[in-house]
Every structure is written in structure tokens, then in C-alpha cells.
Amino acid sequence: MRHATIYITLITLLGLSSCLEDPDCNTLSSTTAIVKFYKESDGKADQIRVSSIKAEGFEDESIAKSDLFSSVELPIRTDQNSSTFLFVTEHGESNITFTYDVSTRFISDECGIEYIIRNLEIASTTMDSVVVVNNTLSNSSTEDVKIFN
């Protein structure tokens, strides 16, 4: 039984070392929706001249500067379940309101928090055609929303 006691002690030390958690700050979640523009006529990728894109209620901060864009990244509000974006483009003024669920998670002391945006939907829009192609936002995604002009 003396041997067993020695083994128990050794195994305890091994066990304690396995309790040390390895931090991993590479989160997969994202809080930006990637929007790509398409031509309504033939469905092909399009570049449009954007004057400004702003988040409703935060008009001082422009999300996209005046330029030609084939895609833009829209920052989703994490403190509420909807975000509205105001577009001024070559096709005129328009807006999109997204609704979604936000889950907040504390990752670790080193990595802080992350948000997971799920069930992304279009609540209302003045644009002709907008489609959500990816309703859970992630880092690996290359396209979340399609806008046809």
C-alpha cells in the first residue's frame, strides 16, 4: 500500500498541472456584417458609389467614406437587438434595419468578452432587394448580406 500512496502523490501533481487552463483568445465570432453589392438586372457583383453610410442615432461617425465600394462592413450594435443603417449612394437615400439576438460571453481574464450575433434578419428596408445569406456572424464569413441595386 506504501507504493500506492507514492503513486497517488505523483498522480496528484500531474492532475494539478492539468488544471492549468491554456488561454485561447482566437474567437470565431464577429460583430460586423459583411455586405456585398450586386446588380439587380443580372445578379452579378457590382461596385457602387457611396456618399456615406451611417448608423442611425450615431450620424457623427461615418462607417464608409465617399468612394466606390463592392462591399462594406456594417458594425452591429451589441447593446440592443436591432441596428439601422442609413445609406446615401448613387441610387439615392435608403436604409436597412436588422434584428438579431446577441449573446455575450466572458471568455477569460486574458481575453475579456465576446459577442455572438445570431438569427440576423432584415426587419425593414427601403431598398429593392436585400437578402441575408449568413444569419450567424463569424470571423470566417466572407459575405453575410446581399444588396441588389
Binding site: 448608423a55 461617425e61 462607417i63 458594425p75 450594435r77 451589441t78 447593446d79 455575450t104 475579456g112 468578452i113
Partner: peptide, 8 residues
């Protein structure tokens, strides 16, 4: 938590 967003 306190979080800073460039937009919001």
C-alpha cells in the same frame, strides 16, 4: 462590462 465601439 464596459466596451468601446468605434461607431457606438
Amino acid at each position: 462590462f464596459i466596451d468601446k465601439s468605434p461607431t457606438y
